[in-house]
Structure formats: structure tokens, C-alpha cells
Amino acid sequence: MSIADTLTELETRAAALLDDAEDAEALETARVEFLGRKGALAGISKEMGRLTPEERAQVGRLLNGVKQNLEARYETRKAGFERAALDARLAGEWLDLTLPAPGPRPGRLHPLTQIMRELEDLFTSLGFAVVDGPEVETEWYNFDALNIPPAHPARDAQDTFWMEDGHLLRTHTSPVQVRAMERFGAPLRIIAPGRVFRNEELDASHEHTFYQLEGMMVDRHVSVGHMLYFMKSLLAAIFGREVTVRLRPGFFPFVEPGFELDIQCLLCGGKGCPVCKQSGWVELLPCGLVHPNVLRAGGLDPEEWNGFAFGLGLTRLVMMRYGIDDIRHLAAGDLRFLRQF
């Protein structure tokens, strides 16, 4: 039998063994037998020395062809076995992804914080500074500077917590108006969100501690028309839709003229429903042009400067937005409540 015939026969046998190997081990045995350093092909190439140069070239080409063929078969089968082994291993790693995931989840920010942040961002985008004021205030900032002198009946409307040292808990965020004018002068655009206090018995709709947002713009030539425009834009941003507003007279000593601003009921669109007590309007916030005495208290000349101010009840806004029926939830710290926001 010629070498060529031997090669052909060997190729057939080896191909069958490689192709039919049952597992990676049998494949490896076949590889060693034929393709290994001491394998059948190596044996044949050793015998090539006995051939004539012509034969050698011919057999050499033949040998290379067989070798490449067998190596390719080997690689294909090897990859197949490796894939199968990996598949088998991974199949064993089956995981029940319906299992609950361990570890803490992000906590929630208090709903009041959330609404404050939202409004702070909104006002900042409108060029307003966000200013803080103290919870414990002087009588001067809380009342006198806001044109509420001692014995003014308006003091009755705001049941005040007094401190033993003669200070008080601010009854509104309005004292920040005067503090801000003193600090920043004019022109001025500020909001002051924060905690305020009224000496009231606690029930589902009354709290001794709640949150307001004071707003103030001071400039030359600020008009009622400016205020209306601003309020309408602001409320459209807060409620995420166009709102219809109206002003009616309201008495607050620190503004003149003073207004109650109503918005057309968002629930019934003004037709009348239980929420707006059939009136079509919902009272939303007090506002007005800053009283000259308040500007003076803030160190500004009312002939040169004027402005508007408003007070937004944040607690009420939160309750309206989420339909919260009991104000006491807000300070109760109950996770069943807080986790809803």
C-alpha cells in the first residue's frame, strides 16, 4: 500500500473517530492518536525521508491536507463539547427570580419636603432666592414690622405661642419679608418656605405646626396687573395646567390693597361641586401689594420701591394634592403614611 493510500485510509478512520467521539475525553484520545506529537500523522511524516523528492512534495501536500481536515474536525467537535459543558453547568445555575430581593430600598422624602423642593426649583427658575427665617421670632418681625401694632385686632386672628423670654413662635412666614429686605435691599425676589405655629387645639383639620411659603417681589412700579400675571403663571406651574384666577378684597395689615386669590375649581371647572361648596371657586392664597409701612420697616423708601407679596399654605397644598383627610398624619411619623409618597 502506498503512503498515499495509507493516508487516505487513515484520514477516513480518524475522521470517523473524531466525528463520532462521544465525549471530550474520547475526542482527546483520538486527537492524540492521530494528531499528537507521537500520533499517526507524525509517524507518517517521519517516513517521508525515505521518499524521492518528487514523492516527498506530493505526499507532503497530501499530508497537510489531511492534517488540516482533521484539525478542523477536532476544533469543531471540541468547541461543541465545551459549549455543551457550559450549557450543562449554567443549566444547573437556575435561579428563581421571583424571589424577593434583599437589602433596603430608598426611603421616602416627607411629602412636605417634596412639595417644598418642587416650589423652590420653580421659583429659582423664575429668579427668586430661597430665604430662611428663624422659627422663634421677635414680636417686632412677626407683628410690628408687618404693620400689626400691639392691640391690633389682627393679632387675635393668629393665636400666638409666646416664649417665656418674650419672643414668640412665628405665626406666619411673613417676617422673612422684612428680614430679606434688610439683608438684600431692593430690587428683591424671594420666597421663604418654612414651619409656622398657631396656638390651636389639634384636630383633623387644625395643626399647631404647619408650613407656609412666603413670596415677595420688590421693584420699581409693581402693579396689581403684574401680580395677577405672576400668580396665574405660578399656579399654572404648580397645578400643571392653566388656571383661572380671580382677586377679591381681603384684609391683611401688611398689604394694601390686600386680596384673597381664588382659583376656578379644578375639579368641576367652575360649574360647582362639593369641593368648591358649589361656588365654582376655591380660596387659595392671600396676597397684595406690600404696605408702605412694611417697606419702611425693611429699610426701603415706599416712594421709590413697591412690590407684591403672597402666602401659600404648603400644608394645605400637600393635603389638596394627595387628598389627605387628616392633617395630623403629617407629623405622626407613621411609616404606613410616609411610604405612600
Binding site: 426611603g107 407629623a331 410616609l338 411610604r339
Partner: peptide, 13 residues
């Protein structure tokens, strides 16, 4: 803090 799993409370002064 909230991202670390803590929920905010608001207690009286």
C-alpha cells in the same frame, strides 16, 4: 440619606 433607605419624618419643635 433617602437613597440609603431612610424615610424622612417631620416632628414637632
Amino acid at each position: 440619606t433617602a437613597a440609603q433607605g431612610f424615610t424622612e419624618v417631620s416632628n414637632y419643635s
